[in-house]
């Protein structure tokens, strides 16, 4: 008789150990498997979160280890919420968030709709379209700074070609009015393919039989689009919005590489501002309060959104 590898291993296990293992209940074994994960979660997520909340009520500064740490109550929260500069960064973040999501959903869905059609070279085009999202944000930020360069940048030349303006007459990342759009364009270029992929999954999940039934009922293509395609792809679209919303709320690398938060503070998003407070000004207590406010904001908005998403899915 040939023994399986498991049986061989069992046979080789010393008797006392085998007895001990046999003696463990299912519940204990389950805990043994889950414990490392729980420990990691506590160490890496929960403990820092609790510690951050605690620090947010103090004047602690990590670069002044010799200073006394005072309990300041809600003062950090008051200062943040009454600081006009913080509200400016919130506005810049909202502008970035709203426009990137709007553009990415519209373009991403349109691309998915086109790619979903059967045509020659379909796979090749899909690969080409998803290429930008495979790049590092630092790389994308770097080469978009070249594209936006007034003297040699391709972007300026394309705009100049269509408008007749002098390419060197405007600077996308140096102008206070254009810079917020410069980061929107770069992020849209990079992440629209991600939205497209999610939408494509949604479109491909719609059974052909539904469209065939609609054809039998003589429903127009327009009618099919609004009554079948959009409602059935909506949960996927909402998922894409959720992912991009969370990602762009904490956007840092691409924007730092592109504009460094400037000119002035026009593209200083909350994450950039938070990093400056925490690791340049070293106001640890203040920045902890800032982080808690952002966490509560994202967590609250995401929770409401997920509930809405579940309702749409249940329909």
């Amino acid at each position: 008789m040939t023994l399986s590898p498991m049986e061989t291993a069992a046979a080789k296990t010393p008797a006392p150990l085998a007895k001990r293992i046999r003696g463990l209940s299912d519940r204990t074994i389950a805990w043994i498997f889950v414990a490392p994960t729980i420990f990691l979660l506590l160490a890496v997520n929960i403990f820092p979160l609790i510690w951050t909340i605690r620090l947010s009520f103090t004047n602690f500064r990590v670069n002044r280890p010799n200073n006394d740490v005072e309990w300041v109550g809600l003062r950090n929260y008051q200062r943040i919420l009454s600081d006009p500069d913080v509200w400016n960064t919130m506005q810049a973040t909202a502008h970035f968030l709203i426009w990137t999501i709007t553009l990415q959903v519209l373009i991403g869905f349109a691309l998915a709709f086109l790619i979903n059609k059967k045509f020659k070279g379909n796979d090749m085009w899909t690969t080409i379209i998803v290429f930008p999202m495979m790049l590092s944000p630092a790389v994308v930020g770097n080469f978009w700074t070249f594209l936006y360069q007034p003297q040699i940048g391709l972007f300026n030349y394309v705009i100049a070609f269509f408008t007749g303006a002098d390419p060197a007459s405007f600077s996308m990342i140096g102008d206070v009015h254009l810079a917020p759009w410069a980061i929107v364009i770069a992020d849209t270029w990079m992440w629209t393919p991600f939205v497209m992929l999610i939408c494509l999954a949604g479109l491909r999940s719609i059974p052909d039989s539904i469209y065939e039934a609609a054809e039998c009922d003589r429903a127009s293509k327009w009618r099919q689009f609004w009554t079948i395609t959009i409602p059935m792809a909506l949960p996927f679209l909402m998922l894409a919005v959720l992912f991009r919303g969370i990602e762009n709320f904490k956007m840092f690398d691409l924007v730092v590489q592109l504009t460094g938060g400037g000119p002035g503070n026009t593209t200083t998003l909350t994450s950039i501002d938070l990093k400056r407070e925490a690791f340049e000004k070293w106001r640890t207590g203040y920045s902890s309060a800032y982080a808690v406010i952002l966490f509560v904001t994202v967590f609250g908005l995401a929770s409401i959104y997920v509930k809405a998403l579940n309702k749409v899915k249940e329909r």
Partner: peptide, 23 residues
């Protein structure tokens, strides 16, 4: 000063806002 970073960041913001952003 030990607080040079705070002083520097404030100056960076104020100067960039005026010189570059024209605020």
């Amino acid at each position: 000063e030990p607080a040079y970073a705070d002083l520097l960041i404030a100056m960076q913001e104020r100067m960039h806002n005026y010189v570059i952003a024209g605020e």
